[in-house]
């Protein structure tokens, strides 16, 4: 029974790999390495130990940028979502900042922090902060009035109300927001590393191209980025499923 859950995707992936190999075989001059060469590229990366170092470097930056963004955005979002006036005051700025791609901050990041970890972490922070803040503000504003009234009825002032009612009430939506934001962080880190640092998976890709057009290593890097991203996503999903956090997912609403 269980085998069926992975059997179909596995077959599908094999078919895709086959098509990929076939296309490369028919157009050898197109400079795209086939799956076989890519696999060899991945193998090639391991003995040098570089790949582990690069993965660790990327994950390290994502952890810092993402965590800082969450730690600032969640309390701020609770306050801003709760006080309508704060939201009205802040909203124009948020709406202007929102459409600016985090990558547009790259020159400023380098200006402020130089080439290095801090610049990359800053870029990830910028990319994660606004989506997280907007998620929290939205979630707070859609907390059912009964919970807030009940909290007030039991004598909670503003701060306890945020801690004991608003925060737990938004956790289900917060978890979804965290998952999406972590995805953004993983997108941003690769781009940041292409420009602002000399290590990490993003750097691996530009470096492989610059140092001798090793497109097998470029695609190998892309595959590794995909796999690590998938693992991160699965990790947050497993948090969503943990009981203390999941009340909203089991509710039949």
């Amino acid at each position: 029974m269980k085998s069926h859950t992975w059997l179909k995707p596995a077959i599908f992936i094999l078919v895709l790999l086959g098509v990929w190999q076939l296309v490369v075989f028919l157009h050898p001059q197109q400079l795209l390495p086939g799956p076989w060469k890519t696999a060899l590229g991945i193998v090639d990366l391991f003995p040098r130990g570089l790949i582990v170092k690069y993965i660790v470097a990327s994950v390290f930056r994502v952890t810092w940028g993402f965590s800082l963004a969450v730690l600032v955005a969640v309390p701020l979002g609770l306050v801003v979502g709760w006080y309508r006036r704060a939201e009205m005051a802040l909203n124009p700025i948020l709406q202007i900042l929102r459409p600016i791609s985090p990558l547009a901050w790259i020159p400023i990041a380098i200006l402020w922090f130089g080439v290095g970890d801090l610049a990359a972490i800053f870029l990830i922070f910028v990319g994660c902060f606004l989506p997280m803040l907007l998620t929290v503000i939205n979630a707070v504003q859609s907390v059912p009035a009964v919970y807030i009234n009940a909290g007030r009825n039991f004598g909670l002032g503003p701060v306890p109300l945020m801690r004991k009612i608003l925060f737990p009430a938004i956790i289900p939506r917060l978890m979804t927001g965290l998952r999406i934001t972590l995805g953004i962080a993983w997108l941003v880190v690769v781009a940041a590393e292409m420009i602002a640092v000399n290590s990490g998976l993003g750097f691996l890709i530009v470096d492989a191209r610059n140092a001798g057009n090793r497109y097998d290593l470029v695609v190998a890097g892309m595959v590794i980025i995909g796999v690590v991203g998938l693992l991160l996503d699965n990790w947050v999903r497993s948090l969503e499923r943990s009981h203390a956090l999941c009340w909203g997912f089991e509710e039949k609403q």
Binding site: P144, V146, Y147, N149, N153, W247, E251
Partner: peptide, 14 residues
């Protein structure tokens, strides 16, 4: 003075 909302007022996270 406590207000009892239908069962909707129970906190689902507790």
């Amino acid at each position: 003075r406590i207000f009892v909302f239908q069962e909707r007022g129970v906190f689902p996270w507790l």
